[in-house]
Simulated scan of single mutants.
Amino acid sequence: METAHGKNCGACTSPEVQALFCELLDQRTSYARALEIREHIAQCDECQRRLESEEVVRAMVRTCCGKSQAPQELRQRISVQITRTEIQWRQ
């Protein structure tokens, strides 16, 4: 979809696009998959801006808290909550 300001996918704020950002920025994502996601995001100017902002924020967090790790129990609780949210959203 084209707008007066450029390309726009129309789903910029959707959970699916946010999931692509998270997958892309996950260090375990393969190089090939990262390229695939970046190509998809390149189709939309707004998604590109959101991705750039996400990358800046994550870089700032790494700089400030890069050596700190959440306790294992907290990490597990967060993972369970994310999984529950995804399941509830899809039902």
Rank of each mutant, 00 (worst) to 15 (best):
Arg49Trp: 00
Cys47Asn: 01
Arg50Ser: 03
Glu55Thr: 04
Arg49Ser: 00
Asp45Trp: 00
Arg33Glu: 12
Ala34Leu: 06
Lys7Trp: 04
Tyr31Ala: 06
Glu55Gly: 00
Asp45Glu: 00
Leu35Trp: 11
Asn8Phe: 04
Arg50Met: 06
His5Tyr: 06
Ala19Gly: 13
Cys47His: 01
Glu23Ile: 11
Ile41Phe: 03
Gln27Ile: 04
Ala11Cys: 15
Cys44Ile: 09
Glu54Tyr: 02
Cys44Arg: 03
Glu39Leu: 14
Ala19Thr: 12
Glu23Gly: 09
Lys7Pro: 01
Arg38Val: 12
Asp45Pro: 00
Glu52Ala: 07
Leu25Tyr: 00
Gln48His: 08
Glu55Leu: 04
Ser30Arg: 05
Phe21Lys: 03
Ile41Pro: 01
Leu24Ser: 06
Ser14Cys: 13
Ala32Tyr: 07
Ser14Thr: 13
Glu2Gly: 05
Gln43Tyr: 05
Glu2Ser: 07
Asp45Arg: 00
Ala32Asn: 09
Cys12Lys: 04
Asp26Ser: 14
Arg49Asp: 00
Thr3Val: 04
His5Ile: 03
His5Ser: 07
Ile37Ala: 09
Cys44Val: 08
His40Ala: 14
Arg38His: 08
Ala19Ser: 15
Cys47Ala: 03
Cys9His: 09
Glu55Lys: 06
Gln18Gly: 05
Ala32Cys: 02
Glu54Lys: 02
Tyr31Val: 10
His40Cys: 10
Glu52Leu: 03
Glu36Asn: 14
Ala32Phe: 06
Glu39Gln: 14
Ser53Phe: 02
Arg28Asp: 03
Glu39Arg: 15
Arg50Gln: 10
Cys22Ile: 10
Gly10Ile: 07
Gln48Lys: 15
Leu24Cys: 11
Pro15Phe: 12
Glu46Lys: 03
Glu54Ala: 06
Gly6Trp: 01
Thr29Arg: 11
Ser53Met: 06
Val17Ile: 15
Tyr31Asn: 08
Glu23Ala: 13
Ala42Met: 05
Glu36Pro: 10
His40Thr: 13
Val17Gly: 08
Arg28Val: 03
Ile37Asp: 11
Gln48Gly: 09
Ala34Ile: 05
Arg50Asn: 05
Ala11Pro: 05
His40Ser: 13
Arg50Phe: 05
Asp26Asn: 15
Gly10Arg: 14
Ser53Val: 02
Ala19Asp: 14
Glu55Val: 05
Gly6Gln: 02
Gln27Asn: 13
Ala32Asp: 11
Gly10His: 14
Leu24Val: 07
Cys44His: 04
Pro15Cys: 08
Gly6Tyr: 02
Thr3Cys: 03
Leu24Ala: 09
Glu54Ile: 00
Glu39His: 13
Phe21Leu: 07
Cys44Pro: 02
Asp45Val: 00
Leu24Thr: 05
Ala4Ile: 08
Ala4Glu: 10
Asn8Asp: 05
Ser14Ala: 15
Gln27Tyr: 07
Glu52Pro: 01
Ser30Ala: 11
Gln18Ala: 08
Glu46Gln: 03
Leu24His: 13
Glu23Gln: 15
